[in-house]
């Protein structure tokens, strides 16, 4: 099963994400916790991967390592050709700005900013002129059906609307990789499905590489590939026929 996934990735000329013997160790007082213990995986461009596992299995930790939000304790990580382990913080910031768009369970919108300003925020750190970034944010919100709400602040938006704003923000710098940590965790199931369909469409239509961490099997069904983690190790890695893949395409 993991053979199949690996073979599949080797068919592509270059993998988008490569992790080799990645480990992550936390020190909690005297205790040493191995959150990740020698994880290796390859993800080809345009693949929709669901990382699953019970809480504490290390799935979020793996996502943050792949996204350059945290440093690995050991192993090698290459994303989009960039070697993340050992990269300095400025380089990681640039990597996150250019290569990855993040979506979080708690949305993480800035409460004092409007939907438009939240989406345009990555442009601030990319030193993009105000009119350019607002035009781009407007186009993204429009594409996600949020045009009537651009001047609303997050507290005035429903959970599903907030997550759409967050997706628009993740797409702002047009990154090749989208990473989502429990993107439907704070949403009801119907809204959750809409969000997953959006992510599926990003993969299918725009060829984005999507990595979603979830413990919800229903969510994982949108993926091309499911990776099961347990106690910091990959216990299962299989390709699946994604639900509504044909619908979205």
């Amino acid at each position: 099963m993991s053979e199949r996934a690996a073979n599949n990735s080797h068919n592509n000329h270059r993998d988008m994400i490569i992790a080799q013997s990645v480990s992550k160790v936390f020190h909690l007082g005297d205790q040493v916790v191995h959150a990740l213990d020698g994880v290796s995986l390859r993800i080809p461009p345009g693949q929709f991967v669901a990382i699953m596992g019970p809480s504490g299995s290390g799935k979020s930790t793996l996502l943050y390592l792949l996204g350059g939000l945290d440093h690995a304790s050991g192993g090698e990580i290459l994303v989009g050709g960039a070697r993340l382990d050992g990269m300095a913080s400025d380089g990681l910031a640039r990597f996150r700005r250019e290569t990855v768009g993040f979506i979080f369970q708690a949305f993480h919108l800035v409460p004092t900013m409007t939907a438009l300003e939240n989406v345009a925020l990555p442009g601030v750190f990319a030193a993009m002129p105000r009119d350019v970034r607002e035009r781009r944010a407007l186009a993204l919100l429009n594409a996600l059906g949020m045009a009537p709400r651009i001047d609303h602040k997050p507290p005035q938006l429903s959970g599903g609307q907030q997550q759409r704003v967050a997706i628009a923000r993740a797409l702002f710098n047009n990154p090749p990789v989208i990473m989502a940590d429990e993107p439907t965790g704070a949403l009801d199931s119907r809204t959750g499905q809409t969000v997953m369909q959006m992510l599926r469409a990003l993969c299918t239509r725009q060829g984005k590489t999507v990595v979603v961490v979830t413990h919800d099997l229903g969510v994982a069904q949108y993926a091309d590939r499911m990776i099961q983690l347990m106690d910091g190790r990959i216990v299962e890695d299989k390709l699946v026929a994604p639900k509504e893949k044909t619908d979205a395409a």
């Binding site: 939000l69 400025d90 910031a93 640039r94 996150r96 993040f102 708690a106 925020l121 750190f125 710098n173």
Partner: peptide, 16 residues
């Protein structure tokens, strides 16, 4: 603090 994490996640450098 969360907002700082968010800013960094969307590409803010330490300097920003």
């Amino acid at each position: 603090t969360k907002e700082i994490g968010l800013m960094k996640a969307i590409g803010a450098t330490d300097r920003d």
